[in-house]
Amino acid sequence: MTSPAKHILVPSHVKLSDKEKETFLQSQNLTIKELPKILVNDPALIGSGAKEGDIIRIERASATAGKTFYYRVVING
């Protein structure tokens, strides 16, 4: 099967590096608990090597803003 990541409904999921993660949390004045979540075994994360506690940046095609970034923290299901 072609990987789910190629499907038009699946936006790109990118794992943030530790440094990016720090700067992101600081710039938004957030703690990791407050972010929306995504399960570690989500089909869209296959092959990304994401583990619990990582932040995933999702580049969505938005109907109103053209493209937006959304952030989810990886949790164990």
């Binding site: 099967m1 072609t2 789910p4 190629k6 499907h7 038009i8 409904l9 699946v10 936006p11 999921h13 995504i38 399960l39 989500d42 089909p43 869209a44 994360l45 999702i58 969505r60 989810r72």
Partner: peptide, 23 residues
Amino acid sequence: ATRTICNDMNEVYQVLGLEAARQ
């Protein structure tokens, strides 16, 4: 496999993941 879609969000969630289900 890039354009085929389904109207059952639970099935999309199982196969393509959370973001696809949201869409």
